[in-house]
Amino acid sequence: MSYARRALAVAWKDFAVERRSKETLNALVFFSLLLLFVFQFTLGGDRERLAAVLPGVLWLGFVLSALLALGRTFLVEREHDCWEGLLLAPGDKSAIYLGKLAGNLALMLVVEALVLGLFVVFFDIDLGRALPGLLVVVLLGTLGLAAVGTLFAAMTANVRARELLFPVLLLPVQVPVLLATVKATEALLLGEPLGAVAHWVKLLVAADVIYVVVSLLTFDVVLEG
């Protein structure tokens, strides 16, 4: 019970700090809008070209936003000298990881919902039947990104070149997730049912389980440095 309360306290704290400061959310919304303008300018109204690149472009937007959001995971602790406070908190440190993961997941999903909505408007896409399946893929893909991203953000929090190191560490590990999400998104946008991409969904579920379990088991060691 105490474990869940501690995880919830971390998630609540991050939510309250972000709700009041809006630092990360504002940056992400602005960044996403900028990306959309660039994509719209580059791709124009060519429907065929758009259909071919849309899944990749969509996930590129998600991943770049995620890199920004996840990289800031422990920034609030460093800025307020609270890092040592987290270290000295008695009890299982994986509760802190779970709280941080929940906060990151919520923030990323909000931004992704916004990006997806703007994609629909900017590129005049009819998601129609693809939406339920797309939501499943986005949720699983985001969990995979956030699970490893939260762990690596802790790992690089006190490293001098963290802005450089964080994506260099994160992106290679995310290859299975990125491959599965882009391929599944492509098929769903072409009108195929979720069942047709079950193999990609299974890969996402397996990757998520592995990432979350490994992160939970190693977070203590990572935090203690």
Partner: peptide, 30 residues
């Protein structure tokens, strides 16, 4: 579980209230 540390930094979050900060650290400390 035995120590209390008052370090250079205050270990408080600027965007939380004083009460919220104490509640957070108390919960995190079990």
């Amino acid at each position: 579980a035995l120590i209390g540390v008052v370090a250079h930094g205050a270990w408080v979050y600027d965007d939380l209230t004083a009460r919220e900060n104490l509640r957070f650290w108390a919960t995190l400390g079990g």
